Simulated assay, not measured.
Amino acid sequence: MAGLVILAAAMTSPDAEEALRLAPSSNWHVNYADDSCRLARAFGTGDKEVTLVLDRFRPGPKVHMTLTGQPIEVRDGIRRITLRFGPNDPAFEKGVTPGMLGNGKAALVVGGGLWITGYDPAVAAGESDAAQPEPPVIDPALYAAIRFLELRISSKQTVVLETGAMAAAEQALAACTDDLLRGWGIDAEADKSLSRRAAPLGSPGDWIRGSDYPPRMSHLGYQGLVHFRLIVDDQGKPKSCHIQQSTRPKDFDDAVCRKVMVRARFEPALDAGGRPVVSYYTNSARFATPVAR
């Protein structure tokens, strides 16, 4: 799944003295939405509080991460973060988009999908989901072994979120995504036995081009991240486009669906017997202004 981008440091142990360790200050909360499943938990309190949000837009182990709170507030020039779900998984870097919530809290949107555990760090660091194939079914014991999430941002104090075991949280997300498919009119069990998933013909990067950047948004310097879902018919044509989540403004949402519905074509999904069937495809498009140098 190739993430669409439209343009108009060494790891230390979380036991190091400079790390800010934050214990949970809430339970895990799972939100069942029409187009996504959200797992969220707060760590720390007051001006040290950080909220971890993991969104899943389709079945499988990948999640999209957002972090909010003063300890992760960064300068506009910061575009990378180093993550580690410890103690057994290795560290990897990801691109980030800084922002601000309506309540004034700083936010970091981590670019692309990522795995909570069971990843190859070289693959996990990729910005294009096309280079990040879904891994085999991940052993639940790996989720159970997680104890913390370490966050390293250049020129910032290391932050360690003491997540504890994440097996139950992952099970809740998996149950939610099965429910998502039923809401889309897709048989969740049949989906698990597909012999081929809907596969783009050509590069998804060609679906949305620089000239598609909404002029008003480009003029204002606005950036946007749009997660979208297509229902793909048994001939490989998109039947509908749905915005699963977006940073808004709506100009970006409209641009994505309008262009993708015209340009996207697929090899249709095949059921266990090799017959073409209706399925779905999810991806994201990021509208970003070039970073000044």
Rank of each mutant, 00 (worst) to 15 (best):
residue 247 T to E: 04
residue 107 A to Y: 02
residue 204 P to K: 09
residue 16 A to F: 11
residue 278 V to S: 02
residue 17 E to W: 06
residue 110 V to K: 00
residue 54 L to H: 07
residue 61 P to R: 02
residue 211 S to F: 03
residue 183 G to F: 01
residue 168 A to W: 04
residue 78 I to L: 14
residue 247 T to K: 03
residue 272 A to H: 06
residue 174 A to N: 15
residue 43 F to Y: 13
residue 167 A to K: 13
residue 45 T to K: 13
residue 166 M to S: 01
residue 51 T to S: 05
residue 250 K to V: 03
residue 107 A to K: 06
residue 215 P to A: 14
residue 181 L to F: 06
residue 62 K to W: 12
residue 229 R to T: 10
residue 68 T to W: 07
residue 2 A to Q: 14
residue 177 T to Y: 05
residue 11 M to K: 10
residue 47 D to P: 00
residue 227 H to V: 04
residue 283 N to I: 03
residue 264 A to W: 08
residue 204 P to R: 14
residue 83 L to H: 03
residue 260 V to I: 02
residue 96 V to S: 06
residue 193 S to M: 08
residue 102 G to P: 09
residue 240 S to D: 15
residue 250 K to F: 11
residue 187 D to G: 00
residue 188 A to F: 09
residue 241 C to M: 11
residue 84 R to A: 10
residue 235 Q to D: 08
residue 235 Q to A: 05
residue 182 R to L: 09
residue 34 D to V: 06
residue 87 P to L: 02
residue 33 A to S: 14
residue 119 Y to Q: 00
residue 58 R to F: 09
residue 179 D to Y: 04
residue 210 G to F: 11
residue 213 Y to L: 01
residue 55 D to A: 00
residue 52 L to Q: 10
residue 269 A to M: 00
residue 109 V to F: 14
residue 217 M to A: 15
residue 229 R to A: 00
residue 72 I to P: 10
residue 24 P to C: 12
residue 171 Q to C: 04
residue 56 R to F: 03
residue 103 N to C: 02
residue 117 T to H: 08
residue 143 Y to V: 05
residue 259 K to W: 06
residue 162 E to Y: 05
residue 13 S to L: 09
residue 35 D to W: 00
residue 100 M to F: 04
residue 291 V to H: 12
residue 128 S to K: 03
residue 23 A to M: 12
residue 145 A to R: 14
residue 61 P to N: 08
residue 274 G to I: 03
residue 18 E to L: 03
residue 162 E to S: 01
residue 57 F to A: 01
residue 273 G to S: 14
residue 194 L to D: 08
residue 253 D to I: 01
residue 180 L to E: 10
residue 182 R to Y: 06
residue 101 L to A: 00
residue 287 F to C: 08
residue 203 S to R: 13
residue 7 L to K: 13
residue 222 Y to H: 12
residue 272 A to M: 07
residue 69 G to E: 04
residue 32 Y to M: 03
residue 74 V to T: 12
residue 17 E to Y: 02
residue 267 E to Y: 07
residue 201 L to V: 15
residue 200 P to S: 13
